[in-house]
Structures are given as C-alpha cells and as structure tokens.
Amino acid sequence: MEELGKIHQLVVTAFGYELRFNLEVISWTWIVIICLLIFGYIAKRNRSIVPGIFQNIGELFIEQFYGLTEDALDKRLARKYAPLICALFMFLLFCNILGIFPHLGEPTSDLNTTLSMGIMGFVIAHYVGIREKGFKAYIKAYFQPIFFMMPLNVIGELSKVISISFRLFGNIMGGDIIVLVVSYLTLSLVLPPFLIGFFFIFIGAIQAFVFTMLTLVYISVQVK
C-alpha cells in the first residue's frame, strides 16, 4: 500500500514561488469536460419531436433540474440559474463515475477540485444576493437578530464552503481508500466490483446531487 497518498506533481518555479500542478487530476478533468462537450453535441445534433437516446437523456437532466430550481427560486431566476445547476450536476456526476474505468480516477478525490467548486458556488450565491436584494439589504442580513451576531454570521457563511467541499472530497476519497484496502485482502476478485458499484456509482450520484442541491439552497437563502 505504498502508493496511497502519493500523487504526481509538476513543480514549476516562477518568481520565487513554487507552483505545483497535479497533472493526473488536470488530465482527468479535461477528459470529463471533453466527454460532456461530445455528449452535448450528440444530444443536440438531430433534434426531433421523437427524441433519440442522447436527446432523451439530456431532456431528462434538464427537465428535472429546471423543476428543482423553479421550486427553490422563482420563475424568473430559474430561467437564469437552471443551466448552472444542471451543468454543475452533470460535471460532478461524470467526475464521480470516471473512477470506474481502469487507470482513471475521480477528479473530485482531489481537494482542489471540490474546493474550487465550493468557492464558485459561494461567490455566485453572494453575487446573486447583492444583485437581487441590493447592497444595503445584503449587508443588513448579517446584523439580523442583534448587532453583535455579525462575527458569527460571517463565520457561518465561510464554514459553508468548507463543509460542502470537504463532504464531497471525504466521501469520494474514503470510497477510494476502502476499495484499495479491500483489494489487498483475500477475495480480491470477488468483492471490489460490488464495492466499486456501491461507492463510485451510488454514493457518487448521491453526493453529486447533494452538492448541487446545497449550492441551490445557498443561492435561495441569499435571495430571500
């Protein structure tokens, strides 16, 4: 079990700083992005009243998440932010399922990916809050119950980023480690396929959905 915790890094020294790139994670992320682009192209190529299989899958995603966004926000905001929510879910789902292929891993088992997704959701939620309520009402929300609750509110907002990104990272990384550890035991041909099916597909889909729903909830909390 020597390879546990080891990652390939490209270290570039520039202006006295060391820049570290996780090359594997970057290439996996690009694989996911290219797969999504190809899927989108195939889904919209032959549009018709009777949908083909790829158009059907695409319509399924969009219909479900449009409905969820419309429930959480109102109709006008849903037109604007449903594409974001849908794209976030599809990206995370493809990321979590990429681990079932040999020699590939999940980009989400690196903290950098999940933390950047969490920070993106945080920034978007606060941008939407300032844009919809106005700057004054946005600042006022921090002093909500009484005046000196402000530091607690700020810490609560910041801890949302930590909790949402560590949840996804921990679930995917924990699944990876459990599969790796069980693979070294006996019955290594029998058990790991079922564990991979459970951890990578089931847990991956649920965690992608939870991440998306929590980002949506953070946006709707800022709007109301």
Binding site: S163, F166, R167, G170, N171, G174, I206, Q207, V210, L214
Partner: peptide
C-alpha cells in the same frame, strides 16, 4: 442523510 453524514466525513 448525506448532510448529517458530514460530521463523520470530517
């Protein structure tokens, strides 16, 4: 359940 699981993940 996934939200209440997060303390275990921490």
């Amino acid at each position: 359940q996934a939200v209440s699981e997060s303390t275990g993940i921490y």
